[in-house]
Simulated assay, not measured.
Amino acid sequence: MNLLKNIRLFLLDMDGTFYLGDRVLEGSRPFVDKIAAMPDCQLAFLTNNSSKNRMDYVKKLQKMGFSFSEDQVITSGEATTIYLNRQRPGARVFLLGTPSLEQEFEEAGFILTDAEPDFAVLGFDQCLTYERLRKLCDFVRADVPYIATHPDFNCPIENGGFIPDTGAMMAFVEASTGKRPLVIGKPNRYIIDAAADKFRIPHEEIAMVGDRLYTDIAVGAQAGITSILVLSGETGRQDLEGSEIQPDYIFEDLGELAKQL
């Protein structure tokens, strides 16, 4: 486990890794306690869901008995603002997203507009209207730089089942315009680049911990960071057989990972 000794930042997926629905997974608290006892190491939560902002997740974790700061949560929405601030601080942005995502962009210094935007950004928008989708397609056809927060086609909901997510909206826009966006969220490296910028920690000292091969583990290879698969969620050992995506390490859960640190 020599490689893990070099890790200063553990990025944790949330659902299936730290909790499942509203239930904290066994091993999560020992992992938090272990990191707290390591002065040169820290953890942060990394999620593709751009419908909520960082404070929404902090409140959910508080209800589970954990005290984390906003700075310890990175959403694909925040990662998108970090990426755009590197391109053009204070830019004019046409944004499809929830009120929480709009707040995230405004607090990052962007001007939200329906006219002459510098960027067109597609996030998870549960208040979506045909008119705003039409405007997005118009901007994309006009070659306004087109960004999507994350590529997930469906979003799980608390009572079971799924609702269409940003990836489904991307498919709509592509069918109409023939164009695809630059995508920030997992499995693309931009979300890890944003985390590295935010915490000022180099990629070689970052590990991604998650339960999904095609997002959490795939982003490790894309971004050149250590990837750690936990078997507490979606992926089982049988899923690794024949998969081109392979983690650097495999643990049953966060508790087993904690014992190795």
Rank of each mutant, 00 (worst) to 15 (best):
L3A: 15
K5P: 00
N6I: 00
I7E: 01
L11I: 09
G16W: 08
T17P: 09
V24A: 03
L25G: 03
E26L: 12
S28H: 06
V32S: 01
K34S: 04
I35D: 00
A37W: 04
P39H: 12
C41W: 02
L43H: 14
A44G: 13
L46P: 07
T47H: 08
T47G: 11
N49Y: 07
N49F: 12
V58K: 13
V58N: 09
Q62T: 11
G65I: 12
F68L: 15
E70P: 10
D71A: 13
S76C: 10
G77V: 11
A79C: 10
T81K: 13
I82V: 15
L84T: 03
L84E: 05
N85T: 07
N85F: 05
N85W: 07
R86W: 03
R86D: 11
P89N: 08
V93L: 04
L95D: 03
G97C: 09
L101G: 01
Q103M: 09
E107M: 12
L112Y: 10
D114K: 14
L122M: 14
D125G: 05
R132K: 15
R134V: 01
R134K: 14
K135S: 12
K135I: 02
C137N: 12
F139L: 15
F139R: 01
R141H: 06
V144Q: 03
A148W: 03
T149V: 10
H150Q: 12
P151R: 04
N154M: 12
C155R: 01
P156L: 08
P156H: 06
E158H: 08
D165C: 06
M170T: 02
A171Y: 03
E174H: 15
E174F: 12
S176H: 02
T177R: 00
T177K: 04
G178A: 06
G178W: 13
R180C: 00
L182T: 14
I184T: 05
G185E: 07
P187E: 06
I191A: 02
I191G: 01
A195E: 03
D197V: 11
D197M: 12
F199T: 04
F199P: 03
F199G: 02
F199L: 07
I201V: 14
E204Y: 14
E205L: 02
M208D: 02
V209A: 01
G210H: 07
L213G: 02
I217F: 06
I217A: 02
I217R: 05
Q222N: 15
G224N: 11
T226V: 15
T226D: 02
S227P: 13
S227A: 14
L229I: 09
L229N: 02
L229A: 04
L231S: 03
E234A: 12
R237D: 00
D239Y: 04
E241T: 10
G242S: 05
S243R: 08
P247M: 05
I250M: 05
E252D: 14
E256V: 11
Q260A: 11
L261V: 05
